[in-house]
Amino acid sequence: MKTLQQQLGNYGLYHRSRRNVITHFFGIPLIIFAVLCLLARIQLPFAEYVISGADIFVLASVIYYLTLSMSLGLIMAAILILMTIAAVPVASLSLNSWLIMSIGTFVFGWVLQFIGHYYEGKKPAFVDDLIGLIIGPLFVLVEALFLLGLYQELEQQISDIAGPTKP
């Protein structure tokens, strides 16, 4: 398995334009929220509990993030749990409203992604490596943390692999 630095550095190769990164700040959370809205409607009985498809998705994602970085994995866990809580009311809507809101949000998020990649002049990372689909949310998190002046060593390690961010 690749390290955190390798995963983010490889993803970063496709995301050096500041405009692309900005579109990802909005597009990726919208896509994740839409997926959680769709999966939250799937209800699975488990012993005395009912778990949702969103719960399984979040658990699997968080386990992966924790293997890459304990601190970033915990931050991602908090964010994904909050997004799942926000997705539950959407999943409770009527079938048509749920589908329109979830799929509309998903499509809009991807439109933003492709606009960003138009500015970048490169295809999305997942085209070459499907792991980019799960690394994208983590990349957005670390880019936000970099803007706050945090994880500077990780920022340098990503720049060493991917090169500097361009305006």
Rank of each mutant, 00 (worst) to 15 (best):
G116D: 06
M101C: 10
V90C: 03
A77E: 04
R18H: 13
I51R: 07
I42E: 01
F33D: 01
W98F: 10
V127K: 14
V111D: 01
L59T: 12
F146E: 03
G53A: 04
I56Q: 03
G132S: 09
N20S: 05
L59A: 12
L80H: 10
Y119G: 06
Y119N: 07
I100Q: 07
Y65D: 00
L133M: 10
Y119C: 06
L133G: 02
R19S: 11
K122C: 04
W98V: 00
G116V: 08
L36T: 07
E143T: 11
S61D: 04
I42F: 14
L112F: 12
S102M: 02
V107H: 09
Y118T: 12
I115T: 05
G104Y: 13
G27H: 11
F126T: 04
T67W: 11
I134N: 04
L112A: 05
I75E: 11
G132Y: 14
S17R: 15
L148C: 14
G149L: 07
G149S: 03
T84P: 03
G73N: 09
L72E: 05
I85Y: 15
V21M: 02
V140M: 08
S97A: 11
L30S: 04
Q43N: 10
M70A: 11
G132T: 09
L145I: 08
D55F: 15
I81W: 15
M83A: 14
A34H: 12
I79V: 13
G132N: 09
S52Q: 01
M70L: 14
L133K: 05
D55V: 11
A40E: 13
T84G: 15
A34V: 02
T67C: 01
G136C: 08
F26D: 00
D128Q: 12
Y118P: 00
I56N: 08
I56D: 02
F146V: 00
A54L: 07
L36F: 11
N96P: 03
S52F: 09
F139G: 05
M70D: 01
S71V: 13
V111P: 07
L44R: 06
L82R: 10
V90H: 09
F46Q: 04
Y118H: 14
D55I: 10
I22L: 10
V107L: 02
Y49M: 09
V21H: 05
V111G: 01
G109P: 06
Y65V: 00
I103K: 01
V90M: 02
L141F: 10
G73V: 12
I131E: 10
I56P: 05
L148Y: 13
L82D: 09
I31L: 07
F106Y: 14
M76L: 02
L66W: 12
W98A: 00
L99N: 09
A78W: 13
I28G: 08
C37Y: 13
L80T: 04
Y64M: 03
L44Y: 14
I81D: 02
F57E: 05
L74P: 08
V88F: 10
V111M: 06
T23W: 11
